[in-house]
């Protein structure tokens, strides 16, 4: 069990996101000098801010052993509402409120169905994803909505020299880390993800924990949607599409397990999200065939899931107790 090979493999799997991170940056960097330029690196950071936030919310749900497929649709619904309200004079401030509220509401719906009615998370959030998309399309009549310049200004604003999206993503990361590591709710979330029945017997209010996790995921999706909106300045019918996959991949690359009970926000979700964005950014810079994007992104996601599976089985192996100390 402690053969050097196995230990090396385990180390590599635990640091999978870091290793991939280095490989991606070295790879694209060697193909194009522009990729590693400070301007582009900042660009990658800015572009990954929404993904980071959505991935953080996703991590909460993954920790419970569930999954939230509706985050992309939640982003779209919020953005569509904001876009609809904009001509009536609703500025970025109102839009944030609207999008967070929409996220919380849809998250509450997800949470209610999962925690109370005990429907499988996959099915619940898949349904909410379709409903959300449909509702958004109906709202926007499938047309693109352009927003006022105010939004783009928020997206490009800086506070003390730090871009607002980076600041927001950072704040979310810190808050989530504190909640998971230093509050009873956070620790109970890990317990529920490990073994929900045992958590209930131990006196944990599992329904409440599940509900909050889905609400948090919805709220994060709302906030991520707002950032994305502030960066794009427009709502198209493709807004937020595939974000569920990006967020899941980012969280899993960062060490969260699809089986629940394992995963961290920092640096995990941050690295994962930046990694995915870096791949997209690199492909754009290389002028790659756009039809290639989904293939490459899915390859990254496949890798993430593969890493998770291998890591889980290897961890199970290494955690088996040692009986004797070999001389």
């Amino acid at each position: 069990m402690n053969r050097p090979g196995a230990r090396l493999l385990r180390g590599a799997l635990n640091q999978a996101s870091l290793i991939l991170f280095a490989l991606v940056f070295a790879g694209f960097g060697s193909l194009s000098a522009k990729f590693l330029s400070p301007a582009n690196l900042l660009n990658i950071l800015l572009q990954s801010a929404p993904t980071v936030i959505v991935a953080v919310g996703m991590t909460f749900v993954l920790l419970t052993g569930g999954v939230d497929l509706s985050v992309g649709a939640v982003m779209f619904v919020g953005a569509a509402l904001a876009g609809k309200a904009a001509p009536g004079g609703a500025g970025p401030a109102a839009a944030v409120g609207l999008m967070l509220a929409a996220g919380a509401l849809l998250g509450l719906g997800n949470g209610f169905l999962v925690a109370r009615l005990k429907v499988i998370p996959f099915v619940v959030t898949l349904a909410v994803m379709s409903i959300g998309r449909g509702f958004g399309l109906w709202l926007t009549e499938t047309r693109a909505l352009n927003l006022s310049n105010e939004f783009l200004q928020v997206g490009a604003a800086r506070v003390l020299g730090v871009p607002v999206p980076v600041l927001l993503a950072g704040a979310v990361l810190v808050a989530a880390t504190v909640v998971l590591g230093a509050t009873p709710f956070g620790r109970q979330l890990y317990a529920v993800g490990q073994n929900a029945a045992a958590a209930r017997r131990a006196g944990v209010n599992t329904r409440r924990i599940l509900l909050i996790a889905y609400v948090l995921s919805g709220v994060c999706a709302g906030l991520g949607g707002f950032l994305s909106l502030a960066q794009l300045g427009a709502v198209s019918s493709k807004f937020g599409e595939n974000y569920e996959f990006k967020a899941i991949a980012a969280a899993v690359l960062g060490g969260a397990s699809l089986q629940g009970g394992r995963g961290r926000i920092f640096p995990g979700a941050l690295l994962g999200a930046t990694l995915i964005q870096a791949v997209e950014n690199g492909l754009v810079i290389l002028n790659a065939d756009p039809y290639l994007y989904p293939l490459v992104t899915s390859a990254v996601i496949f890798l993430a899931v593969l890493v998770d599976a291998t890591r889980t089985s290897l961890l199970a192996e290494s955690h088996r107790r040692q009986i004797r100390v070999e001389p």
């Binding site: 620790r187 890990y190 317990a191 490990q194 045992a198 958590a199 131990a202 955690h319």
Partner: peptide
């Protein structure tokens, strides 16, 4: 309980005080 109700992904202390930190 007849079956153990402990969480391997938490520390001993966290297991002990899970509902009353």
């Amino acid at each position: 309980h007849q079956e153990l109700n402990l969480f391997g992904n938490l520390t001993i202390a966290e297991n002990l005080f899970l509902t009353r930190f």
